[in-house]
Amino acid sequence: MSLKHDIEFTLNGVKRRVSVDVTMNALAMLREVIGLTGTKYGCGEGECGACTIQVDGVSLNSCLMFAVDCDGRNVTTIEGLANDSKADALRESFVEHGAVQCGFCTPGMIMQADHMLHKHAHPDEACVKRGLEGNLCRCTGYKKIVDAVVACGAAEVTP
């Protein structure tokens, strides 16, 4: 039997206690143990960003993180962001700008964009492109995604 370990952490604002396989990654824990499937598997090697989550306020690839390493930390997934009114503007911007096609990369894109907007409130196009370089999209050609994030940042300038 594989080795289990109990961890306790905050997930989307709620304290959770779960028992996980020590070798399991955070992505598998979220999807298979906890049942939150908004975080996507795209490559398992940190090359595509579809599994991006935020841990203690920074964005990470959940496929590159051991589940046990969530212990004691503050984890936010796309489902948590969906309950965050500040993120509404970002999500709406993605919708309005046509940044969503097949949508498989979208949760990871939004998690990364949200993190970026916390660091740079009003990013320009070049900054957004650099910020999203770890997130692959095969449908949109990125332009509308970049537009959506830039517009969201710009909207905050004018109250």
Binding site: G44, G46, C63, L64, F66
Partner: peptide, 28 residues
């Protein structure tokens, strides 16, 4: 030894690296 995990996680998941008797997380 586990630190950031960006290399160990995928390498061990793919079976390219075998985790030894103890997995030690040095984060704390």
């Amino acid at each position: 030894i586990l630190a950031g995990g960006t290399d160990l996680t995928p390498q061990s998941q793919a079976g390219r690296v075998k985790i030894k008797h103890t997995l030690m997380n040095i984060r704390h």
